[in-house]
């Protein structure tokens, strides 16, 4: 298991053009090993740019990305190897499916790694299971699948590379509540079984609160908050001020507090709110 650290990382969109924008501004960060971390920020906060630096899709203009203490750009020719170690599932990944069958599509990454047929077969089946795909779907064409199944196939395509760090950019975007829950459950299960490090990028606070152990909040190309859920949600008003949606239940407890009802801050699940409020009646 390996870890990602970034030091003084900066990146500009459209560098040296009139449209130049500073997307990342001197970021120092360490992704904790062996757990699910959530990366939160509104559109344009730099979160998608940051994750594309982790696997060497984008090259920093300033600063370093370290994988196990080693600069990933030390040998630029070997950057592909970094991408196998740091798996990135992009937003709406179902658009990347291209093979005739789901099986072949999941095998695309492992094939690029130069693995043997039997090794590929093992990985494809394992990844499909992790992503919650029925084995009989493997021989189907990606275009015969439902939206949710396509999403899972695309995620399996990354898991099949057995990355040490798995990054998912908005894995549940556009899915209905049932699909959302089930995909997050699959990710949590995958993390538990494989013991790997997972980073989820999202702006859905409710999902993040439920599935992540640690949270990182970005705003304006910088890290604004970092810590476990409780620490982060105790700054609910700060989160709201930068255009983030805090969980409804956190909003409700904030309201009650404003009305003079004594509740401590940083409640972010319904169960917790229930426990605390029921005590007020006893």
């Amino acid at each position: 298991m390996s870890e990602i650290t970034v030091e003084k990382l900066s990146y500009f969109h459209g560098k040296d053009t009139p449209y130049e924008i500073k997307a990342l501004d001197g970021i120092d960060l360490k992704i904790q090993k062996g757990m699910i971390t959530g990366l939160i920020g509104h559109t344009g906060s730099g979160k998608s740019t940051l994750v594309q630096m982790f696997n060497g899709i984008l090259r920093p203009h300033e600063g370093k990305v370290l994988l196990d203490g080693e600069d990933i750009w030390k040998r630029p020719k070997d950057i592909r190897k970094i991408r196998f170690r740091v798996g990135l599932v992009m937003q709406y990944p179902e658009y990347q499916l291209f093979e005739e069958t789901i099986y072949k599509d999941i095998a695309y990454g492992p094939k690029n790694m130069g693995l043997s047929e039997s090794e590929i077969d093992e990985r494809v089946r394992e990844a499909a299971e992790f992503a919650g795909l029925e084995p009989d779907l493997l021989e189907k064409s990606p275009f015969d699948l439902s939206g949710g199944q396509k999403r899972r196939a695309a995620i399996a395509g990354i898991i099949a590379m057995r990355p040490e760090l798995l990054i998912l950019d908005e894995p549940a975007a556009g899915l209905d509540p049932r699909g959302r829950d089930s995909i997050f459950q699959n990710i949590a299960e995958y993390q538990k079984k494989s013991g790997s490090t997972v980073l989820i990028v999202s702006h859905s606070m409710e999902d993040m609160a439920r599935y992540c152990e640690r949270l990182i909040v970005m705003s304006g190309g910088k890290i604004m908050l970092e810590g476990n859920c409780r620490e982060v949600f105790s700054h609910a008003d700060l989160l709201e001020s930068v255009g983030l949606d805090i969980p409804q239940i956190t909003k409700l407890t904030m309201m009650l507090r404003e009305r003079g009802i004594e509740l401590d801050s940083s409640v972010y699940t319904v169960e917790e709110a229930f426990e605390k409020i029921i005590k007020l009646y006893s």
């Binding site: 899709i57 592909r80 990135l88 992009m90 658009y95 990347q96 695309y108 990354i158 590379m161």
Partner: peptide, 29 residues
């Protein structure tokens, strides 16, 4: 292209045919 690069696609090495082949995973989607 970014998504396929993340799966190890290589668009910049190899001969003309290899490069053209590497574009299939981009062109179909």
């Amino acid at each position: 292209m970014t998504a396929q690069k993340a799966r190890g696609a290589d668009f910049s090495s190899g001969g003309l045919i290899a490069r053209a082949k590497a574009l299939i995973p981009v062109l179909i989607p």
